[in-house]
């Protein structure tokens, strides 16, 4: 049995694991933060299906996404990055955080099959599963320099 409270912790722990291991940046959870993430933002998303169906999203502004990509690739000057590098990096973050979440919940929820990640850039981006979906969202402080948001929306599958 999973709850939104335990999923918030799971999402934050998973994001921290990925950022500490692959991005070399520290994450700190922010309580009650509703301020804008800045514009434009990049949203990395990955969908899943199985006993649970839904999507996981990772959102931050462009400057943050460039820093994440540079750190992942070991590049000291973000000017060397291509748009594709930044987009790919955000997709991989979504992919790895989803993998880390899945590893933590799969004993409780059963089979979950994950898609290929996708990334979009724009303003006020958000994923929506529509009515009846549960949404868990956490805001984070990244290396005390940027803010980001991780979200998980899901519903129990009718095909169980």
């Amino acid at each position: 049995m999973i709850t939104t409270v335990s999923l918030k912790d799971t999402l934050l722990d998973s994001a921290r694991e990925v950022f500490e291991t692959m991005v070399f940046m520290a994450l700190e959870g922010l309580e009650d933060d509703t301020t804008s993430l800045g514009e434009p933002t990049l949203l990395g998303s990955i969908t899943f299906k199985g006993h649970l169906e839904g999507c996981l999203g990772v959102c931050c502004d462009e400057a943050c996404a460039k820093t994440i990509a540079a750190n992942m690739l070991g590049i000291t000057s973000p000017e060397e990055l291509t748009e594709n590098d930044v987009s790919d990096a955000m997709g991989e973050i979504a992919n790895m955080v989803m993998g880390a979440v899945k590893a933590r919940i799969q004993n409780d929820v059963g089979t979950v099959e994950v898609s290929i990640p996708s990334v979009v850039q724009g303003r006020e981006l958000k994923n929506s599963l529509g009515e009846g979906a549960v949404q868990v969202k956490i805001r984070v402080n990244i290396e005390e320099q940027y803010r980001g948001e991780f979200s998980l929306q899901y519903r129990e599958s009718k095909q169980q």
């Binding site: 692959m22 690739l73 594709n84 590098d85 790919d88 990096a89 991989e92 290929i116």
Partner: peptide, 9 residues
């Protein structure tokens, strides 16, 4: 890997 970034990483 289908991600060029992940191949570099």
């Amino acid at each position: 890997d289908d991600s060029a970034t992940m191949r570099k990483i």
